[in-house]
């Protein structure tokens, strides 16, 4: 019975069906089962499968977006019960994302966020046109492991420096890693401004974060 519902949970993520995922989470709680078990052995394996399929071009970005939506819907149902029981959900790390001040382009940043969620990271997305101070403030409040700052324009790319300076002012460096991305950004730029890394696309950004943020023992995927 339990195995069967866990399998349906996996399927709901792969299908990208938020309502179905939420209903399964509800059903699980009503039976009195342990909520972390549903996340770790039902929903997350679904996300892992989606990530793998995306990597080999069997699934595509809209599929990953839908899977992330389903994951979000399921965790929204389970999260209150996890907290009520005083449990702690194992996440691989917390990443604050945003597009720098003066820049409204966020497709790339959103893709990075989706892939991070799919891989089991907690993502705090600050949106676009984000002031440097706001990155640092959010990273401090959330106890983030990494901050990702995106820019599409050569004219806004310079704001990456401000983000790093704001992080330093709050003494968050070098503990909190900073990664930069966006069309004009290069590895050279990342090194020049003292960031911890740069990635050319969303998949590589995920690999970079995985490398920079060591997963703590026993955590999911």
């Amino acid at each position: 019975m339990e195995e069967e519902i866990l399998s349906r949970m996996r399927r709901s993520i792969v299908d990208g069906a938020p309502q179905h995922a939420a209903a399964l989470a509800q059903e699980w709680l009503q039976s009195g089962s342990e909520p972390l078990h549903a996340i770790n052995d039902g929903f997350i394996p679904g996300m892992r499968h989606v990530g793998e399929q995306f990597g080999c071009r069997a699934l595509y970005l809209p599929d990953v977006m839908a899977a992330a939506e389903a994951m979000k819907a399921a965790t929204a149902v389970l999260e209150p019960e996890i907290q009520r029981r005083g449990l702690k959900r194992g996440v691989r790390g917390t990443v604050v994302l945003g597009t720098v001040q003066g820049d409204i382009h966020e497709i790339g940043k959103n893709l990075v966020g989706t892939l991070l969620i799919a891989a089991g990271f907690r993502v705090i997305d600050l949106g676009c046109n984000v002031a440097a101070e706001r990155f640092a403030e959010a990273a401090e409040q959330a106890g983030a492991d990494a901050v990702g700052a995106s820019s599409l324009l050569t004219t806004t790319m310079v704001r990456h420096r401000d983000v790093i300076a704001a992080m330093e002012r709050r003494n968050l460096r070098p503990r909190v890693k900073i990664i930069v991305g966006g069309a004009p950004v290069t590895g050279k730029w990342s090194a020049e401004i003292g960031a911890d890394g740069y990635a050319a696309d969303a998949q590589r950004a995920l690999d970079l974060v995985k490398r920079l943020v060591a997963p703590s023992a026993g955590d999911a995927p």
Partner: peptide, 8 residues
């Protein structure tokens, strides 16, 4: 178009 694999 958006490339559905790479996002470019």
């Amino acid at each position: 178009i958006l490339d559905m694999s790479t996002g470019i």
